[in-house]
Amino acid sequence: MRGSLFIIIFLGLIDPLQAQYFDKTYSLALDVNVPLGNTDYVNRVSARGFKLGYREMINEKLFGGVDFTNSTYTRHVPRQTYTNGTNALTTDLFNYAYSYGLTLSFDYFFNTEQKLMPYAGLGVGASYMNYRQFFNVYSKQNENWGVLVRPQGGVLYKLKEDSRWAFLAGVHYDYSSAKSKDFGLDAFNNIGVQVGVIMLEW
């Protein structure tokens, strides 16, 4: 009886301490991006993006995992005439760039015990860019793969210290080497802001 009481008291003491440290996270965030490159082709802010993330603890402050991102950039070019040698084409253009990224990502947390947990990280992986140009019922597209490099930083905020949920806010810069010869486009880069939720598991 005395032994059981001791164990219960011991677990009561140890549990709150263990609850401070999460070892896996799952995140879902809205990703708002601004294109910095190829702005002749797409120039509008993309509010349609999102990020899915998964991390596992490497050590107390360093986490590694994968991120999957998606965003769509657009531009409307009003009706005008394009001349190429003997050929002339008059139309308005709806330029779209569908961007997908899958990165191996590492985040360094400056602390993992408090309500507010700032972090900085880097993701490196694959970028898939689908450039598509719509005009009337016609369209032209070009798909390209490249390397994606994404430095990122942000904060997690828990409403309670032992909460398994936290809010996520972050900024990132993306460089994608996916160029399009068909559209005459160079490597793509953008900055973005992410706002979402993150689940902490331990």
Partner: peptide, 27 residues
């Protein structure tokens, strides 16, 4: 999320078909 990703947005049909495409070429 993947479902959303699968749905690639396209331009509004009314805007897209507002004007006709005119193309010419010569010898």
């Amino acid at each position: 999320g993947l479902l959303l990703a699968g749905c690639q947005p396209v331009p509004d049909a009314e805007e897209l078909n507002k004007n006709l495409v005119v193309e010419t070429d010569y010898d």
